[in-house]
């Protein structure tokens, strides 16, 4: 059932790697698809407004009318989770995109810019990696103030160093490869070599890291919202929903359980798909 690559007698690659069953990968991908759909068009799945309050229906447990119950203001939790997909997921994706872009530029500068830029960039990366990620994010927010956009920048700041290291390492290997030497001897410009040869070849591992790190960014974004430093409370963001409901957890478990479940399942699915990609890419490279 499981396929293993035999590299040399006795050395089997892929067997020891943690393998999620194929059905698990498909389930994760399907779940992500659902999240993507409700993030793009929440109205397809949920009817009514996520902000519709109903004082008479406050803290109702899950039933036929309110699938996942209602919160302290009588708002339907299912509707709020559906409408919360967009802000919750977008923050993680935006932070990752920002970090990948910044990290790639920094990594390229370090690998190709010569000795001094290399030293400077890598030492800055060392310093950033020495700080607890969340603390770095908090420093950014302390300086820039709370809010969705600043939270995105804060998360990008602490995931960026990892990408910078990866791109630098990849570029160092690629620039010594035969095809780059050939391109140089053909007289191609540096910019063209970077765009046509270096970046495409560094892309696969970068994509894998980014996919897995989207999960980290999602957790970080929801953590900041939970701490009250992201989107403001009325917004139906998953972390903010938990933050707003904290006074009612003792009497209404559904307020505490469902928004967190949405975050966890999304992150779990991202991790499963990311690891699957990782295994495929590593299999191709080795």
């Amino acid at each position: 059932m499981t396929t293993s690559t035999i590299v040399s007698p006795g050395v089997v690659i892929g067997r020891r790697r943690r393998r999620v069953p194929r059905a698990g990968v498909w389930a994760a991908a399907a779940f992500l698809l659902v999240v993507a759909v409700i993030a793009i068009a929440p109205g397809l799945v949920a009817h009514g407004s996520p902000d519709l309050t109903d004082a008479l229906a406050a803290l109702r447990p899950p039933d036929g009318e309110h699938l996942l119950g209602t919160d302290a203001n009588g708002r339907d939790i299912f509707t709020r989770i559906v409408y919360g997909a967009r802000p919750s997921v977008l923050a993680g994706l935006a932070a990752t995109a920002l970090a990948v872009t910044g990290g790639t530029l920094a990594g390229l500068l370090a690998a190709l810019g010569g000795r001094v830029p290399d030293e400077v960039v890598m030492r800055v990366v060392d310093v950033l990696l020495s700080l607890p990620g969340l603390l770095l994010a908090l420093l950014v927010i302390a300086v820039a103030g709370p809010g969705t956009l600043n939270a995105v920048f804060a998360i990008a700041a602490y995931t960026l160093p990892g990408y910078a290291r990866l791109v630098r390492a990849q570029t160092m290997v690629i620039r010594r490869s035969g095809y780059v030497e050939a391109a140089v001897s053909l007289g191609l410009t540096k910019a063209r070599i970077i765009a046509r040869h270096v970046l495409p070849n560094a892309f696969a591992p970068l994509l894998v890291l980014a996919t897995i790190e989207v999960g980290t960014a999602l957790v970080a974004a929801s953590s900041l919202s939970f701490l009250g430093l992201g989107p403001r409370p009325p917004a139906p963001e998953w972390g903010a929903m938990l933050s707003a409901g904290r006074d009612y957890f003792s009497v209404a478990w559904w307020v505490a359980v469902f928004p967190g479940l949405a975050i966890t399942l999304t992150v779990l699915s991202v991790t499963v798909v990311g690891r699957h990609l990782q295994r495929r890419v590593e299999g191709r490279l080795s």
């Binding site: 999960g215 957790v219 929801s222 953590s223 939970f226 972390g239 938990l242 904290r246 957890f249 003792s250 478990w253 505490a256 359980v257 967190g260 975050i263 966890t264 992150v267 779990l268 991790t271």
Partner: peptide
């Protein structure tokens, strides 16, 4: 995958 604040909330609940 589980965010630690949610783990904490579940344990509390």
């Amino acid at each position: 995958s589980i965010p630690s604040f949610w783990a904490g909330i579940l344990l509390l609940t």
